[in-house]
Design a protein around this nucleic acid. Structure first.
Ligand SMILES: [Mn+2]
Ligand SMILES: [Mn+2]
Ligand SMILES: [Zn+2]
Ligand SMILES: [Zn+2]
Lengths: 157, 157
DNA sequence: TTTGTAAATGGAAACCATTTTCAATAAGGA
DNA sequence: TCCTTATTGAAAATGGTTTCCATTTACAAA
């Protein structure tokens, strides 16, 4: 559950300053857009949303801020294969939990799912251990995505 | 094991014609580049290779042919996060088996691995069944990739 | 073999998400 | 309030991929 429900300063200010970054209106607005979002936003999506309440924002700043957030580990960056990156607040920053994605190759819809995630985590742990030993490869991240047709697109075909 | 070891026409000619495509020198050269390759090639990589034996080739044709091959299911298209797509002959077209990838985020090296693939397949089957039922999502493809530091880059840090 | 026709081709231009450049601005410690 | 330096936005650059279009080619039919 996020703190800062209208009372003190937003929960991420401390972490932001701790990394030596300044708090600016643009960054504030971008974070809020990500916090309010219930979907996976592109840089352009975020730019549009922020632009309505803070017209001075530049797309460049959106890209730069997102890069910082990704490097700080506050935001995930995804590639769903449509040529533009998508951004999503990391679990713990929101109500969300660890999840993976179903991507419809037809309508580009993306479904979050948490089913079987425990099983997946178990396998991943085991795999990571084995692979890091065999290839002395240090795994820091993983991607699991399913591609196919969503219910609606399946029926339309 | 691929057929056509110097005797009849290449194994993929039939499938190609079956889809209504014509056999051309360019397509022949591109397929051969993929067959001979032991790594994951970008469009530019393929263009360079083909260009040495068939200078008339155009990069455009490489892209067009790759798209056909991907749609026909003869070639996989991957995104390892470095801004350019990589292509790899599908299992069965070569000696290769079903495998997944370890991607070094530092040197961009990609390691094929088959370890734990059986376990993974088991989980995937289960997951696919559950997800297709719950979300009526028809899964046609999946991506499992691990990101991190390869042995060499780990030591250099 | 010759011919007809649609498919295929290459080069140049367009596309488009993202990055770089740079002069102006603003955050925040002193 | 003042100073320093990070941050910013606009415009230009970048670079992989796609589109355009006039020319060439594969190959089936004659
Ligand atoms: Mn998600
Ligand atoms: Mn591979
Ligand atoms: Zn769909
Ligand atoms: Zn490496």
């Amino acid at each position: 559950m996020p703190r800062g429900n209208g009372l003190g300063p937003p929960w991420w200010h401390g972490r932001f300053r701790g990394c030596g970054y300044k708090i600016t209106l643009g960054r504030e607005a971008i974070l809020n857009a990500l916090i309010k979002a219930d979907q996976h936003l592109s840089a352009e999506d975020i730019y549009q949303k922020v632009h309505t309440t803070y017209p001075a924002i530049g797309l460049t700043t959106v890209y730069r801020t997102l890069e910082i957030l990704v490097n700080m580990g506050l935001v995930f960056k995804f590639d769903f294969g449509d040529g533009r990156a998508r951004y999503e607040l990391v679990e713990g920053s929101k109500k969300s939990h660890h999840h993976h994605h179903l991507v419809c190759t037809n309508c580009k819809r993306v479904i979050d799912y948490t089913d079987f995630v425990d099983d997946e985590i178990g396998l991943l742990k085991k795999t990571e251990k084995g692979l890091s030993k065999k290839y002395s490869f240090e795994i820091t991240n993983h991607v699991i995505q399913f591609y196919g047709l969503c219910g609606q697109c399946k029926n339309t075909k």
